[in-house]
């Protein structure tokens, strides 16, 4: 390998994507060529530095603006008064404490009123169901941990989740910063673990989860499902040195019991 070939491969080298043969020739050349060594080390320094640049957080106003824009689009798209009123209330991200639960009660009263005026009851029931799901979604998007927890709890109001709530709960398990929210979302999703996409995402998250508490909760939830992929992930965990001892021990015990 000569200096020019080195420079063609530097980017893959920085990203650790050189195949084994290339990596060997790369190292051999670098060992013998001070110029390339210096250049590559410079680039590596810069490339590493870029990854260390802190990611900035936007203000909470951005979120509020986005949801109110989305809401105004909804209103424009669906000029149905009752539905629109519900959506205004539920999709807008700033729901005051306690209001969410009151909304359902109030919706019940409205339904009563509408029944008398002869509206289609099933249609209204559907609307209420979708309302409680909207409240869940909206709460799950809040900045405050306690609001998001309320969102997860609120999801229990619906006997059947629609796909969007399931997605939001899955996202919460995988990406919520709060351990408590992740734990609550795992609980809420337990009835849905028989669905392959839900199960798969939980298995994926188990692989990347760092909190031992959440790991154990995921393991327990998944263990009941007995899927091949689940068992495989658990077996890998039981030998993974990065997993803390008590969790590893827990996995081993479960696996032994299952044999």
């Amino acid at each position: 390998m000569n200096c020019e070939e080195i420079s063609e491969l530097v980017y893959d080298y920085l990203n650790e994507r050189l195949d084994a043969d290339c990596a060997v020739s790369f190292t051999v050349h670098m060992d013998g060529c001070a110029e390339c060594r210096e250049q590559v080390s410079d680039l590596q320094h810069t490339w590493t530095g870029l990854a260390d640049l802190p990611q900035e957080e936007p203000s909470s106003e951005l979120k509020a603006r986005f949801y109110s824009m989305l809401e105004s689009q909804q209103v424009a798209a669906k000029p149905r008064p009752l539905a629109t009123w519900f959506q205004n209330l539920a999709v807008f991200p700033l729901i005051p404490q306690g209001l969410a639960a009151g909304v359902l009660l109030f919706a019940g009263i409205l339904i009563g009123a509408q029944i008398e005026s002869g509206e289609n009851v099933d249609e209204l029931r559907r609307e209420v169901r979708s309302l409680s799901q909207r409240v869940t979604l909206s709460l799950l998007q809040q900045d405050s941990v306690s609001e998001r927890l309320r969102g997860v709890r609120f999801s229990y109001q619906s006997a059947v989740y629609d796909e969007e709530v399931i997605i939001a709960l899955i996202d919460a398990v995988g990406y919520d910063k709060s351990v408590n929210v992740r734990l609550a979302a795992i609980d809420a999703l337990k009835p849905y673990l028989s669905q392959q996409p839900v199960l798969n995402s939980m298995v994926t998250f188990l692989g990347k989860e760092r909190s031992p508490l959440v790991q154990v909760s995921l393991i327990d939830a998944l263990f009941g499902t007995n899927g091949g992929e689940t068992l495989e992930t658990l077996r890998v965990m039981s030998n993974d040195a990065q997993v803390i001892d008590s969790v590893r021990e827990h996995v081993r015990t479960l696996l032994e019991e299952s044999v």
Binding site: L62, F66, Y67, L70, Q73, L137, Q141, D171
Partner: peptide
Amino acid sequence: DGDNVRLGMLFERHHKKLFNFFL
């Protein structure tokens, strides 16, 4: 296909990255 609410999920996934991109 008309299900605008789902844009919220895309917003949640991408707005921070876009923000840093523009920053």
